Amino acid sequence: MSSTAANPERISTDNHAPNVWPCLAYTDARGAIRFLVDTLGFTESACYGDGDTVDHAELTWPYGGGVMLGSAGRDTPLDQHADSGSVYLVVPDSALADALYEKVRASAATITVELRDEDYGSHGFSCRDPQGVYWSIGTYAGHGFGE
């Protein structure tokens, strides 16, 4: 085991592409993209496919990272998990968490955890998008990153 693995330290991600991309399959991938862009604030950076089928899409999160998604039914391993999953999104401050909470409340998504302050310092909430995927939004950036 390397010393980095045994004693992990914060690694700078400045000037590096995100290296963790959750991958999701949706029955209605185009609808999922609309929700993620219009309601949560992702940016569609790539989308390939014809008609209602999305072969591959990349959505970037304005505060770092992103998600990849595609249509279910394309005979991929993700098909077994279509319209399921859970993703956590970090926002830079409580005001943005509050604003996103209001946008989600006004959408077709379901709030599953009301807006609240956590004992570990996060301010946020959780929702389930119109197709069933869970999204948690909060100010907690992870141990060692939000300091």
Results as ranks from 00 to 15, higher is better:
residue 62 P to L: 14
residue 66 G to L: 00
residue 130 P to G: 03
residue 110 T to N: 11
residue 85 G to W: 10
residue 13 T to Q: 15
residue 129 D to G: 00
residue 92 P to I: 04
residue 130 P to E: 08
residue 59 L to A: 00
residue 105 R to T: 11
residue 145 F to T: 14
residue 118 E to W: 09
residue 35 F to S: 04
residue 58 E to V: 15
residue 68 M to G: 01
residue 142 G to L: 06
residue 85 G to D: 11
residue 120 Y to C: 03
residue 144 G to F: 12
residue 22 P to A: 05
residue 141 A to L: 05
residue 92 P to A: 06
residue 43 T to P: 04
residue 120 Y to I: 00
residue 90 V to W: 13
residue 89 L to K: 02
residue 51 G to Y: 03
residue 90 V to C: 08
residue 38 D to P: 02
residue 84 S to P: 06
residue 34 R to T: 12
residue 98 D to V: 00
residue 87 V to H: 00
residue 66 G to A: 00
residue 133 V to Q: 11
residue 91 V to S: 06
residue 17 A to C: 11
residue 23 C to Q: 15
residue 5 A to W: 12
residue 144 G to N: 10
residue 104 V to P: 02
residue 73 G to H: 09
residue 71 S to G: 04
residue 128 R to W: 07
residue 93 D to Q: 09
residue 118 E to Y: 12
residue 74 R to D: 07
residue 70 G to V: 08
residue 58 E to W: 11
residue 147 E to A: 13
residue 118 E to N: 11
residue 62 P to E: 14
residue 26 Y to P: 05
residue 91 V to H: 07
residue 16 H to M: 13
residue 67 V to F: 05
residue 97 A to Q: 01
residue 8 P to E: 02
residue 107 S to F: 06
residue 123 H to T: 06
residue 83 D to Y: 02
residue 129 D to R: 05
residue 4 T to I: 13
residue 125 F to S: 05
residue 136 S to E: 08
residue 35 F to W: 10
residue 17 A to G: 11
residue 86 S to P: 07
residue 9 E to G: 10
residue 44 E to H: 08
residue 24 L to R: 10
residue 16 H to C: 11
residue 65 G to V: 01
residue 112 T to F: 08
residue 121 G to I: 03
residue 120 Y to F: 14
residue 62 P to G: 12
residue 72 A to W: 06
residue 47 C to K: 04
residue 13 T to G: 10
residue 49 G to T: 09
residue 126 S to E: 13
residue 6 A to W: 11
residue 5 A to K: 13
residue 74 R to K: 11
residue 52 D to N: 11
residue 103 K to R: 15
residue 63 Y to S: 04
residue 110 T to C: 07
residue 137 I to S: 09
residue 25 A to K: 10
residue 123 H to V: 01
residue 65 G to S: 07
residue 86 S to I: 11
residue 128 R to C: 10
residue 51 G to N: 03
residue 131 Q to D: 14
residue 60 T to F: 01
residue 126 S to D: 13
residue 120 Y to W: 15
residue 12 S to R: 08
residue 12 S to N: 09
residue 132 G to L: 02
residue 39 T to S: 01
residue 126 S to L: 08
residue 96 L to Y: 10
residue 67 V to N: 01
residue 22 P to E: 05
residue 103 K to S: 14
residue 10 R to W: 11
residue 10 R to I: 15
residue 79 D to R: 01
residue 46 A to G: 04
residue 5 A to Y: 12
residue 80 Q to C: 07
residue 60 T to D: 07
residue 2 S to A: 00
residue 115 L to V: 00
residue 104 V to I: 06
residue 23 C to H: 14
residue 103 K to H: 15
residue 103 K to W: 05
residue 50 D to M: 12
residue 14 D to A: 15
residue 101 Y to S: 07
residue 10 R to T: 14
residue 22 P to N: 05
residue 40 L to E: 01
residue 93 D to S: 05
residue 16 H to P: 08
residue 54 V to N: 06
residue 128 R to A: 13
residue 52 D to P: 06
residue 124 G to I: 02
residue 64 G to D: 09
residue 141 A to I: 03
residue 98 D to I: 02
residue 52 D to Q: 12
residue 39 T to D: 03
residue 46 A to C: 06
residue 105 R to P: 01
residue 40 L to H: 00
residue 14 D to E: 13
residue 57 A to G: 00
residue 27 T to P: 03
residue 76 T to M: 14
residue 52 D to M: 08
residue 39 T to W: 02
residue 128 R to P: 07
residue 115 L to N: 02
residue 102 E to R: 15
residue 136 S to I: 00
residue 145 F to G: 14
residue 63 Y to N: 06
residue 17 A to E: 12
residue 52 D to V: 09
